[in-house]
């Protein structure tokens, strides 16, 4: 969160709607620990990261939905052989994210 503050303040001053995604849990190997965060504004601008770049694209999609609906959600990304899971961590770990609007 620390590294997001300047951009969050800038976006808030412009009145942009914002969603914040935070790593809340990690199983197995993963590059970022709980607390790692990224934020997305209504224009699709992004700051921060929650993995080594593996899942950020999918997080942006989820975050834009959170901005749209205003509803909080928990999202899990993990490694799977199942091709249905198009997005995952290539390092073999599983991360759990909590996404919410910055309305607090």
């Amino acid at each position: 969160m620390r590294e997001l503050l300047n951009d969050l303040d800038r976006w808030q001053k412009k009145g942009k709607k914002i969603a914040v995604a935070r790593v809340i849990d990690l199983e197995g190997s993963g590059p970022r620990l709980p607390g790692a965060a990224m934020a997305v504004n209504e224009d699709g601008e992004v700051v921060g990261s929650v993995s080594g770049g593996c899942v950020e694209g999918a997080v942006v999609v989820e975050a834009l939905e959170v901005i749209e609906t205003g509803e909080r959600r928990t999202v899990t990304f993990g490694y799977s052989d199942d091709e249905a899971f198009a997005v995952g961590l290539t390092c073999g770990g599983t991360i759990h994210l909590f996404l919410e609007p910055l309305d607090w």
Binding site: M1, L8, F98
Partner: peptide, 18 residues
Amino acid sequence: LAAAIRAEEPVALATVIE
């Protein structure tokens, strides 16, 4: 929260996630 982080004062945020 942002002010405390910038001032390098210890602070923690608890959020109900479920």
